[in-house]
Every structure is written in structure tokens, then in C-alpha cells.
Design a protein around this nucleic acid. Structure first.
Lengths: 134, 134
DNA sequence: CCTTGCACCTATATCTACTACAGGAAGTAC
DNA sequence: GTACTTCCTGTAGTAGATATAGGTGCAAGG
């Protein structure tokens, strides 16, 4: 069956039409067939790949990582070992980011706490921002 | 005292020279005096402001928020009330981001756990990415 | 005083990851 | 066959910088 127009593909994946053409241009998504008149005709493979890309981006994988994952999970199917490395690396980054944000959260919460909200000339938040990190 | 060249300012703040000029161009940092030959001469106010900008960016405040904070904490010193609002808003965003990342971390960790790291044809990580979110 | 060499100047281009036109042609519905 | 929608290409724009090209300023040594 297959045979999706770019608009249908966009609706099915939630990916912007312009973005689909962009992905094709940068080689992230394979070039589809064309009608006699030049309109793109995508198949189920394109649908799968585009969903994969979208999901990976939502999960915070960087565009370069997505590309590598596509190569690894693609026809070659070298799989698991390399894929796992990328996922673990990503996991470590996520954990680091969480730590950073938790520290920031504490700092901000403590500072806002000190702040009366009135029109005090000396402001704890401004102070915090003006104080260089140790 | 005063009288910093752009290079000195860059060294003292850790902000790239090009970025300092960029901040001046977009009005984030006031235009400094110039020597007869056209070289910028920054004063302690610029130093303070630039340190403030850098710190706020490090703490994850968006460029627009930084600009607002600068306006509020600047000569007008309307202060605290508005500043507090921005900080609280930012705090809420940070908390939301932490929640998202923690969920992602669990998902990734569980998936990687399932993965032997061998050359299994079906890969848990690829599976995860191919499975649409509910 | 003059040269050397670094720091600095402006203006423009590049980057990432897209998004948004403009102007025209293809496909579809009646 | 005409109206309407969707699609086409190509170019330009976005934020938030960063990098480059080609040209001066300035300070120190000889």
C-alpha cells in the first residue's frame, strides 16, 4: 500500500512538512519516490524512520546521535553493542543534567525564600546573580 | 582605575571577545567609551554587568529573562517584586525540567538494563525508540 | 623615529536545527 | 473546466552566538 503524500506523513508523525523536506535535504531521511508531476511519495519505511527520529529527539538524543542510531539500527543492523554505548552515554548526560538542575533548584528556592517580595532596595535574587560562584 | 580593554574584560569575565561585542550590538551591554583610535574602554559597571549576564546564563535564565533582570536591577531599581516573579517562574521551569529528565532517566536506565550488549538482532534500545509514546 | 607584533577594529559569513515565505505547478472535487 | 487545496523549489529568516577577512591602533625594543 504505502504511498503517503508529504502532508499525510506530516499528519501521521506530527512532524512539520518543512522539517520533513529539511530531513531529506540533510540526508536524515531517504529521498522518496516521486509522482510524474514531482510530488513526493513516501512509503512505510519513511514513516517508521521519521517516527524514530521524532521519538529520539523527544527523548533528548542529539541530532548527531540520532543519525548514528539510524545508521546502526538501519539495514546494517550491527546493533546492540554500539547502540547501547550511545544510550548509556546519553543516560550519563541526563544524570549530570539532573544533578545540575537539582543544585540550581535548591539555590533558587533558598534565594526566593529570603525575598519578601516588597520593594526592598537590596534584593536577594539580584544579590545571588551578582555574586560570583566560588 | 577603570579602563579595561575588551581583551582584559574577556579575561576577567571568561566571556569571549566576539560575544562581548555581540552583547553590545544587541544592547545587552552598554556601549563603552572609545580611545582616539576607536578601541573600546570598559569601566567597572561594564565588568559588573557582564559578570551578571554570565552568571544568570549559567544559572539557566533565558536571554530575555536576563535582559529583564538587567532592566529591573539596573538604575531604576524597581526591584524585588518583579525580580522575584521571574526567579519563581524560572524555578518552576527548572522543577518541570527535573521531573521530565527523571522520567527519561528511568526509562533509559531500564532499557539499557535489558540490553545484554551482545549482537542480539532485537535491540531493546532500538525497540524503545521505535515504540510510540502512549 | 621606526619597525615589529599583538590586540583591536568593522563587516560579513558561518553554525544548528529548523521555520517561513514567495511564486508557481500538480492534484482533486464538482 | 474551473476552483480549491496541496505540493513544488528556492531563498531568507530565527536565536545566540562564533569565526573569518582584511584592515588599523598601540606599546615596546632597537
Amino acid at each position: 500500500m504505502g504511498g503517503l503524500s508529504i502532508g499525510e506523513l506530516a499528519r501521521k508523525t506530527g512532524v512539520n512538512i518543512e522539517t520533513i523536506r529539511y530531513f531529506e535535504k540533510i540526508g536524515m531521511l531517504g529521498a522518496p519516490e516521486r509522482t510524474a508531476g514531482g510530488h513526493r511519495v513516501f512509503d512505510d519505511g519513511h514513516l517508521r524512520t521519521l517516527k524514530f527520529i521524532k521519538r529520539a529527539r523527544e527523548l533528548g538524543f542529539a541530532p548527531k546521535e540520532v543519525r548514528t542510531l539510524l545508521d546502526l539500527g538501519g539495514p546494517a543492523k550491527a546493533c546492540c553493542d554500539e547502540v547501547r554505548k550511545i544510550a548509556v552515554h546519553h543516560l550519563e548526560e541526563v544524570r549530570g543534567k539532573i544533578d545540575d538542575l537539582v543544585r540550581l533548584e535548591r539555590h533558587l528556592a533558598a534565594t526566593v525564600e529570603q525575598c519578601s517580595g516588597g520593594h526592598v532596595p537590596d534584593c536577594a535574587v539580584i544579590d545571588m546573580l551578582e555574586t560570583a560562584r566560588p
